Simulated assay, not measured.
Amino acid sequence: MLPKGANLQKIRDGKRTYAITPHLPGGFIKPEVMQKYVDVTKKYGGTMKLTSAQRIMITGLKAEDIEDIWQELGMQPALGYANCVRSVKICPGIAFCKRGKQDSIKLGLELDKRYIKKEMPSRIKLGVSGCPNSCSEAVIKDIGVIGTDDGWDVYVGGSAGSHPRLADKLIEGLNYDDTLRLVDIIMLYYQKHADIERIGQFIERIGFEKFKADVLAEFYGQVSAVTEPKVPQSEAGEKIVPVPGGLTEGTLVFGDPITADSVISDIIRVYPQTIPVFRSFGMGCLGCPSSTGEAVSKAAEIHGLDLPELLAALNKVVPANN
């Protein structure tokens, strides 16, 4: 079991080290809180790391120290669902930047307040940029918002990782309230219709035309005229036809046993009943970029798991093997 609020970072000579990453909305931190970080890091022999999500990670920690560290920081463990809204990256906007066109801090902090750690079909990252320079990398976020002279432009489906994708522009020129309302509609639509897939993969599967039509129809109070696209269905023994931007790089089909070479995302797409098994082994982030091309053997090695034990548990819930 993972220590509460920690992530496994490294296994070296059989010894495991962990990291904690307290939530810092927008990357803003008071001097007295920063001092706590410094004192605790020194005391427990850790290292501080500035992350790309505007947080401060303390890494190189021992499992038995994690609970005391949270207490000494005076913080609750940064808990959430494995697949959830991970971060809202915010640029300085008009508050601190001469090029800012919109108040990215106000909008970003409100989005953080509404959505951070909320459960989703897969991980979600948001970016809020106060001008088209897009210092918060909005176009490679699942939902990105960019300020212009005319208001907020909203983008969807961006991601980095092993399958990078630039986001599609959904709408432009929204005011503050309408932007929040549209983001809420996007989130609800994604939660209702997506598989264990990033928003970009979801869009590639159903088509951007349908995604845009459905979301904007809800936004404008209309009825979408775009019909559901035909998606290949998988039945016993039938080969799955890959779709653009799909989750898997593997070849697993229904009825196949799970082997050391089976790709993680392939397994959970074909056998979703394996999700609780993965989670019971501490492998909760099943929608991360690594899962799209990582075999079970590699994942077991990274997490320090016994491969035969993991494969046996996975195959136990596969219908063909029962």
Results as ranks from 00 to 15, higher is better:
253 V>P: 03
54 Q>I: 09
120 M>D: 04
4 K>W: 11
143 I>T: 08
251 T>D: 11
6 A>N: 15
129 S>H: 03
187 M>N: 01
199 I>Q: 09
111 L>P: 02
39 D>V: 15
115 Y>S: 03
272 P>S: 13
300 A>N: 01
284 G>C: 06
311 L>F: 08
95 A>F: 15
268 I>W: 09
293 G>Y: 01
40 V>Y: 12
299 A>L: 07
276 P>F: 06
154 V>N: 03
95 A>I: 14
250 G>W: 07
84 C>H: 07
17 T>R: 08
189 Y>G: 01
128 V>G: 02
320 A>L: 15
19 A>C: 09
47 T>S: 06
316 K>P: 09
130 G>L: 04
250 G>S: 08
232 P>T: 00
90 I>F: 08
113 K>I: 02
306 D>K: 10
310 L>K: 09
269 R>G: 13
249 E>H: 05
146 I>P: 03
309 E>L: 13
173 G>E: 04
237 G>F: 00
94 I>Q: 14
51 T>A: 09
146 I>N: 03
25 P>Q: 07
34 M>N: 07
298 K>I: 05
221 G>R: 06
42 K>Q: 14
192 K>L: 04
258 I>C: 12
165 R>M: 09
61 L>N: 00
113 K>F: 04
288 C>T: 02
322 N>G: 10
106 K>L: 03
249 E>V: 06
168 D>K: 10
104 S>K: 07
114 R>E: 02
309 E>W: 15
148 T>Y: 08
237 G>T: 00
221 G>H: 04
22 P>Q: 06
212 K>N: 08
26 G>Y: 08
260 A>W: 12
241 V>P: 14
212 K>H: 12
240 I>E: 14
226 V>D: 01
33 V>C: 09
137 E>Q: 02
209 E>F: 12
262 S>D: 13
125 K>R: 13
241 V>W: 11
243 V>A: 05
203 I>W: 10
250 G>N: 05
222 Q>N: 11
